[in-house]
Design a binder for these strands. Structure first.
Lengths: 152, 152
DNA sequence: TTTAATTTAATTGTGCGCTATTTAATTGCT
DNA sequence: AGCAATTAAATAGCGCACAATTAAATTAAA
């Protein structure tokens, strides 16, 4: 048996398994927010995208499906039904851009905005579960960024 | 905005994206074998499992769906339909264990066995695409194994 | 300005991955 | 032996992920 064809020697099998294990770790935390992991990623983008205007009025910067897909590496085949489900849950609304009717803009609702507070603890909770030190995390992040740059 | 909730600071988002990118890298290589990535993983297990008897007669060691699932971290909800597709493609056959009718054993067909030769080049090809040195690969593998041990 | 090319989403279809449930076979207990 | 508990697969249903196609709007070009 060629050594390279052995499952236990394969980087991809490790990444595949760790990715699944991570999603399983997220599940109980996200369940209380009524979100799946991909939906949580959408929320992270929208929370980050929030702009504050004067007089404490909350205003969202326009974020098209296209732009969202670019940030998350997902296409409309994945995002369209996912966003529709999130709209049904009341976390976002979708509006056609009046200047360019091809484009659909995604906005946080009040309810989606409020959800951010409940999510604050998630990153620290997940980090604790990894059992990594801050330095180990930093090194791994560095390596993965280099790998991603090579394969993309 | 809390730094930890930012997408670009999250380990899991990196793992999620790299896993998808890796699967996309595999796709053209596996297409010529008519396999998906999870199906390829099943083939890796079966190829590794092959036993040789005297007089050059090829014999497969029994591998149940249960045992396969344990190796791949997949349950019957995923494996049952996947194995059915692979049987339709002619790469495997499924047989109820006569000693324990609850168990289903998976066997390579001649066609599935032959496919191994065409797969020999895949690991080296994938490794080349990562752009990693052997040492970098080794270090990353080590780190991921430790991480996996922590989160499982 | 009419037509052609491009862009943006939505839709369709396939294949995981997982949860929960169901069915059937086996084991354990009394 | 008889019955409960356990085990192994299969099934049903939901939500991605992606390829391919379609539809509509915009831009570019002749």
């Amino acid at each position: 048996m060629s050594e390279q064809l052995k499952l236990e020697n394969q980087l991809c099998f490790r990444l595949y398994n760790i990715n699944k294990a991570m999603t399983r770790l997220y599940a109980p935390l996200l369940k209380s927010l009524n979100l799946t992991y991909p939906q949580y990623l959408v929320m992270l983008v929208l929370w980050q995208n929030k702009q504050w205007e004067v007089e404490l009025r909350q205003q969202e910067q326009a974020l098209s499906v296209k732009a969202l897909g670019k940030k998350l590496n997902l296409d409309s085949g994945t995002l369209s039904p996912l966003l529709k489900r999130m709209e049904n849950l009341g976390f976002i609304v979708r509006k056609r851009n009046t200047d360019d009717e091809r484009s659909v803009e995604v906005y946080l609702t009040k309810q989606g905005s409020v959800l951010k507070e409940k999510a604050q603890c998630i990153p620290a909770s997940m980090f604790a579960k990894t059992g990594l030190t801050a330095e180990q995390l930093h090194n791994l992040t560095d390596t993965l960024d280099k790998l991603m740059a090579n394969i993309q």
